[in-house]
Design a protein around this nucleic acid. Structure first.
Length: 485
RNA sequence: GGCGGCAUAGCCAAGCGGUAAGGCAGAGGUCUGCAAAACCUCCAUUCUCCGGUUCGAAUCCGGAUGCCGCCUCCA
């Protein structure tokens, strides 16, 4: 596999620290609000990474944390007159529910910051001993950025330039405005823990340093997160951990791009947040997942509702094709019509390349392009009666079908039972538009009778009536099927 | 102001020096009582613009324009 390493700004061959085993840490969410589609993208991207590593035969130890002590949680708790613990618990559950619907696998470890206060204090202590950090009389502990010469390497920033851009807070007791908090003195009413430096709580960055080292050991293989975490979060994490350990922290850094809405970043001030739940009200979760994988993970992805509509159609097409191929395979074969060599070759190439694309820095979009090409190839076999019934044709169809499904297992899309998916999609829409399924079935039966009696004007009138409900009919050999929009 | 990213058909999108994947929409066709669905075929001599390097550039270099992001909490 090849992976783009944010630190070197290059695609590099991936070699884990230990043959066959991968230690992966991804920054999770701060549990103070429901998930938006940006959270979903990060989760889905790294979920595909994990699945693909496992498909490549690696044993993966995957850690994704929850930040459960933080200003935003504290503020929210104050607003709602509840405890921080309650707020964190509520949104951790909400996150898990959303991710489960998106088919995002649980991490092997999902630590919470508050479970690792001791580990954080141990690192802070070490940094104080070695002069990389200092405690103030107030009871705050800061990291001394100037003491770590490599600071800025990850985010490509120069310390001098950073300093120029920083506004100096006159009340600040930091030695240098660039220094960041490792430990924050407790304020009344806030969650706090006792420490050698007084009552307080950890800074945000130290959480990930402590949890990753504790659960994976350092250096671990891959550290992931959203692009917005590169600075300052990951830069600071890296500085702390490297200063404390004297060695490498993460061997590869991977960052996913933003999800934008109407070409702009989602933000509280613009009020353009789209939550995962918002999307789930309009489309089945798998449609969102498919959409998120439609563009390379490092590029910005623009969310629009029409794009979701297109995505749903594309996804439906894959399931439809899988179903058509399966049905053909259920019929008898045994003919010996030869399949042109080019077809077999093309299929082999497409299957190989679709996996190669995944292995090449997770190029899901290119991979899916090849899946569609395989579908067209499969359909061409289906179209040709001789090929469809020949041993060669059926064997190829079988392997194409299997390849599509196993690729779907890695991507976490189009891998369910096709009939079930298609049926669920219809039910989803029926519910969304408030259509009564009984009523639909009744009208379809009535029309069926009219058609049998060759009363086509009656049949067409019934079809129009159903069309007004948003329902289109499909007459087939086994009866009439229906669909929405 | 400093740093970084992006610009490919009506829309979305892959492409990483060898002659433009794929999806949606659109057109034609097969099928059908008529439809719909499904399927097949077609759909960018050209990659924002201007220069340069090269036998060869969407891909590399320089410049211009436009959009986005980071530098403060953020996936």
């Amino acid at each position: 596999m090849r992976i783009y390493n944010s630190e070197t700004r290059r695609k590099e061959p991936f070699k884990p620290r230990e043959e066959g085993r991968v230690a992966l840490y991804v920054c999770g969410v701060t549990a103070y609000d429901v998930s938006h589609i940006g959270h979903a993208r990060a989760a889905v991207v790294f979920d595909v990474l994990v699945r693909n590593l496992r498909a490549n035969g690696y044993t993966v130890v995957f850690v994704r944390n929850f930040t459960d002590v933080d200003d935003k949680i504290i503020n929210r708790a104050a607003e709602e007159n509840r405890s921080s613990e309650e707020i964190a618990e509520q949104y951790i559950e909400a996150f898990r529910e959303d991710m489960s619907r998106l088919d995002v696998l649980r991490a092997d470890f999902e630590p919470r910051a508050t479970e690792h206060i001791q580990d954080m204090q141990a690192i802070i202590g070490k940094l104080l001993d070695t002069g990389y950090a200092y405690a103030t009389s107030e009871g705050n502990v800061y990291f001394r950025v100037r003491s770590f010469p490599d600071y800025g390497t990850l985010s490509g920033r120069d310390v001098e330039e950073l300093k120029a851009g920083i506004r100096i807070d006159p009340d600040d007791e930091k030695e240098d405005p660039l220094d960041f908090a490792l430990w924050k003195r407790a304020k009344p009413g806030e969650p706090s823990w006792s420490s050698p430096w007084g009552e307080g709580r950890p800074g945000w960055h130290i959480e990930c340093s402590a949890m990753s080292e504790k659960l994976l050991g350092i250096p671990f293989d891959i550290h992931g997160g959203g692009q917005d975490l590169i600075f300052p979060h990951h830069e600071n994490e890296r500085a702390q951990s490297m200063a404390a350990s004297g060695g490498t922290f993460a061997r590869y850094w991977m960052h996913n791009g933003y999800v934008q809405v109407e070409s702009e970043k989602m933000s509280k001030s613009l009020g353009n947040f789209v939550t995962v739940e918002d999307v789930f009200r309009e489309h089945p979760p798998e449609v969102l997942r498919f959409f998120l994988l439609g563009k390379h993970y490092r590029s910005p992805l623009d969310f629009t509702w029409p794009a979701m509509q297109d995505t749903e159609k594309a996804l439906k097409r894959i399931y439809q094709a899988r179903m058509n191929m399966s049905l053909a395979l259920e019929q008898s074969g045994g003919k010996d019509t030869p399949l042109p060599e080019e077809i077999t070759q093309e299929a082999g190439q497409l299957m190989q390349e679709s996996q190669d694309h995944l292995d090449d820095d997770l190029n899901t979009a290119a991979c899916m392009g090849h899946i569609f090409s395989l579908i067209r190839l499969g359909n061409r076999i289906l179209e040709n009666k001789g090929w469809r019934r020949s041993t060669q044709g059926r064997e190829l169809l079988q392997s194409v079908l299997e390849h599509i499904r196993s690729t779907g297992d890695i991507l976490g899309v189009f891998h369910k039972d096709p009939a079930t998916f298609l049926d669920e999609l219809r039910r989803f829409k029926a519910e969304k538009y408030g259509v009564d399924l009984e009523e639909v079935q009744r009208l379809i039966r009535e029309r069926q009778e009219a058609r049998q009696n060759k009363d086509f004007s009656r049949a067409d009138a019934l079809r129009d009536q159903l069309a007004e409900m948003g329902i289109t009919l499909q007459d087939g050999p086994q009866g009439t099927d229906w669909d929405m929009e």
